[in-house]
Structures are given as C-alpha cells and as structure tokens.
Design a protein around this nucleic acid. Structure first.
Length: 283
DNA sequence: CCCCAGGGGTGCT
DNA sequence: AGCACCCATGGG
C-alpha cells in the first residue's frame, strides 16, 4: 500500500476535505477508509497520524487531487482577518479544496440547484452507473463519471430519465452536447482570469452565477470565487452584513453585494474562506 | 401533510 | 434591468 508522509507544518484533514460537501462521490466506510472515484480511478485512502495511505491512483495524482502542493498555512493566514473566520479556521483546520475533474464538477453543480447534498450524490451516482464504465478491481470498485459524449450521443434528454434529475435533465443534456462539441473547453476556462472564466461558465445550460462560482472554485482553483447559497447568505447576514434582507429570495444584486464584500474583506483567497464558513454551518 | 434545499430559466414589466 | 414564478425531487 503506497503512502505519503505529510509535512509536519502542513495541516490536512481527509475527513473535512471529503466530507464538507465540495465533492459528491466519496464515502467513508465503517473501517475508516474513504472510497471514491476520481478521473476514472477507483480510489481508497485513509489518513492516520501524518501518513496518507492510498490505492487506486498514483502518488502524483493523489498529491494533485488533494492539493498537497498548496501551502495551506499561507492561505489561512491571508483570510484570517477577523474573530469569526478565525474561529471557523480553528474548527475546520486542515480542510483543503480539492481539484475536481472539470466536467464532473460542472455536471454536479447543474444537479445541485434547488436541492440538497444527499440528492445530488444520488444523481451523480446514477449518472455514473448509467453511462460510465466500471473501474477498479478487488476491494476498490466503482463507475467512472461519464464523459459528455456518453450523454450527448443520445437523441434526447429522455436518456436521463432514470437519473432522477427532474427539471435539470435538459440542462445536463444540452451542456453535454455543448461540452462534447468543444474538446478544449476546460483548458480555455483554466487559462482565463476569474471574471472572464465566470462569464464563460454561465454559458453552459443550467449554470448560473452560483454554480459557476462553485465550478471555478472546486475544479479550476479560482480562489477569488465566493459561491453564495442560502447557508452562506445566512452566515454573511448574521455576522458581516446585518443590513441584508431576511427571507426575500436572493437577488442577483444581493449576490454581488455579498461576493464583492467577501472579495474585499477576505482577499484573493476568499473562496477558501467561503468553504471554512460553509463547513461550520449549523454549528 | 408541511417546509426546505450548495438556483436557473423564462417571461413580464 | 429587475422581479415573479415555475421547475422535479428528496430529506427531515
């Protein structure tokens, strides 16, 4: 079993990283091992003391996926600018943003509109079982997330009817056609600055400002992105922007107010601040 | 039965 | 441009 010895001064919590809701394909078994599929690899891993054990992927991929090359302390120092975020950082120390496969991430956040995390996980699992290839062997098995062409090759979004996507099915289908038609879309987005990348992302069907910010943060490492959902909005109103309305639907203007405040207050890594705030929701 | 959820598209004004 | 309304599904 391959292992990675973590550097002493670099905090890393596997539980917080995989359990915070940024990725939808990981499960923690009774034995304490996490299992999931990423980039067509069925992976099992466990963190004990300062050692990350893993199988199913190469060391370079594991380091890349978990952003182990990122100096987390530098980022946390940068966003640690008030007592509330300081407490959130203390509470969730070691949470890292992973590097998700772009297409899977895009699809995941189309499926994440107006719903909850368990339902999103089910939809992504169904899509993988329905359209993806079985991968792995022995104790590590699963289904690869299907490339866009696996969905785009069908005649209509009816092919998605078993995946419980509801009104999101036509969005997934249209975005599959779109992504399949332009092979280099992810590299193009990756090479754009945040604002331009965000504009490009919202051209995909079913991707609005919120979903675009999630994909930019979780798949493209655009740490200036600050996704605002009902939880983050509540936290920001209660702790930073008391003048925000309570109860009314979140308008585009209010979204930009919150996003703009966060960018100025937390700085260029405000996306990391968002995830630490989100991880501490409900308590 | 209810209300809520990591919202976006459409259409009206 | 800003706003109202609809969307289909699942969790609690």
């Amino acid at each position: 079993m391959p292992r990675i010895a973590l550097e002493k001064d670099q905090p890393f919590s596997l539980d917080l990283t995989l359990g915070c809701g940024q990725a939808f394909r990981w499960d923690k078994g009774e034995d304490g091992w996490w299992s999931g599929v990423a980039d067509g690899q069925a992976i099992r891993c466990r963190l004990k003391a300062e050692t990350l054990s893993f199988e199913g992927a190469g060391e370079a991929y594991i380091r890349h996926y978990f952003s182990l090359d990122t100096d987390l302390n530098e980022i946390l120092d940068a966003i640690d600018c008030d007592p509330f975020i300081h407490a959130a950082i203390d509470r969730s120390s070691g949470l890292r943003l992973v590097r998700q496969p772009p297409w899977e991430c895009l699809c995941s956040y189309i499926c994440a509109t107006n719903t909850n995390i368990p339902a999103v996980r089910r939809r992504i699992a169904l899509l993988s079982e329905q359209f993806g290839d079985p991968v792995g062997s022995g104790s590590v098995r699963g289904y690869a997330f299907p490339g866009p062409e696996r969905i785009a090759c069908h005649d209509s979004d009816e092919c998605l009817s078993t995946c419980k996507l509801g009104y999101r099915a036509p969005y997934v289908f249209t975005s599959s056609r779109d992504a399949a038609a332009q092979a280099g879309w992810a590299e193009r987005i990756q090479n754009l600055p945040y604002d331009a990348a965000r504009k490009e992302m919202t051209k995909f069907a079913g991707i609005g400002p919120k979903a675009a910010d999630c994909v930019l943060l979780f798949a493209f490492q655009k740490y200036e992105a600050f996704p605002v959902d009902v939880w983050i909005r509540r936290i920001m109103r209660e702790h930073y922007l008391p003048e925000l309305p309570d109860g009314a639907p979140l308008s585009g203007r209010e979204y930009d107010t919150i996003r703009g405040f966060a960018r100025k207050h937390f700085g260029e890594y405000c996306g990391y601040a968002q995830e630490y705030l989100y991880a501490g929701r409900e308590g």
